[in-house]
């Protein structure tokens, strides 16, 4: 689909940023045909701000549990403080993880053989954060509903772990598929990008919306999470990224542990940070045990 067919700029800056976020989610920003120059065309600052807003929204949904229990136990001040803390900590969690893992991703990316410069890698990471946070924020209403209706702290903690894992998995899949596309486009692919399934070109139904009129598109457009056909990742690339995903997941999980409390146990006083003890995985094990007792 040619870019000129789409309105490039929507009225107002916020509208444009949301449009850019939508382009990332739809895979338009990382479409193999448009990624030839080994760069993703996204406004870094705008997307970063959108990511922060999404994180704040999810932080608020996390704080709902505190508000619900706070109203019950007449500790509204503690609840509001906790909500404020969660709203500021969720963006912090993601950006600190980004800072910790950015250098290693850059180095590994170079090791894999990609000539990607530092700015495209940063853009790539911001874009995958945007994917991650969008999924997270879209699950916010579900979390808020369960937080309102569940007095059980352990359940909410585990639900958060599940939601974060789901969002993280999608974000990382996006990251890897896009990095692969970027690497391929840098190398000048031996199995060219044309190997994506481009079906018979047919104009869209004339009855469809105005903007889609006369747009020529392939039969199946690869989504942002799709592996491109005809382009297989090299085995060493796979290994490197396997390791890197593990590192990213571990850092993210442990960062969440260091920055806790996000939800706020109803039995403990409000704290900005808890003393450093134990680790994420031990805590998840304990929480599962608590759920049954």
């Amino acid at each position: 689909m040619s870019e000129s067919a789409k309105p490039q700029v929507r009225s107002g800056t916020i509208g444009n940023w949301l449009y850019q976020l939508d382009r990332i989610l739809r895979g338009e920003a990382t479409r193999p045909t448009d990624i030839q120059q080994a760069d993703i065309k996204i406004p870094v600052l705008g997307i970063t701000l959108v990511v922060v807003v999404l994180a704040v929204i999810y932080g608020f949904c996390m704080g709902v549990f505190g508000i619900a229990t706070g109203i019950e136990s007449a500790q509204l001040q503690k609840a509001l403080l906790q909500t404020f803390a969660s709203m500021s900590k969720v963006p912090l969690l993601f950006f600190l993880t980004l800072i910790v893992t950015f250098p290693s991703l850059y180095v590994f990316n170079a090791l894999v053989g990609s000539q990607l410069k530092i700015l495209p890698v940063l853009k790539l990471l911001i874009a995958s954060l945007a994917v991650n946070l969008s999924v997270l924020a879209s699950m916010g209403p579900i979390l808020a509903f369960f937080s309102l209706s569940t007095p059980n702290y352990s359940f909410i903690v585990l639900l958060n772990v599940v939601v974060f894992t789901a969002a993280g998995t999608l974000g990382l899949t996006f990251l890897i598929q896009t990095l692969n596309r970027l690497t391929v486009s840098q190398h000048g692919p031996s199995a060219p990008v044309a190997a994506i399934p481009v079906g018979p070109v047919e104009p869209n139904d004339a009855e469809s919306e105005g903007s889609r009129l006369a747009v020529i598109k392939p039969a199946v457009e690869p989504g942002p999470l799709d592996r491109l056909q005809g382009i297989a990742m090299g085995s060493h690339v796979k290994k490197v990224f396997g390791c890197w995903i593990v590192v990213f997941g571990l850092v993210g999980a442990q960062m969440g542990w260091v920055l806790r409390p996000f939800i706020g146990s109803p039995n403990l006083p409000f704290q900005w940070f808890r003393p450093r003890s134990s680790n994420f995985f031990e805590a998840v094990g304990n929480t599962i045990y608590n759920l049954f007792s």
Binding site: L25, R26, S138, M139, P141, I142, L170, E221
Partner: peptide, 19 residues
């Protein structure tokens, strides 16, 4: 339905099924 729709929308978009 209302509570479950936002994530359905986002994941649909991510899988490239927005159209």
């Amino acid at each position: 339905v209302l509570i479950s729709l936002p994530s359905f929308f986002v994941i649909n978009t991510l899988l490239g099924l927005r159209d």
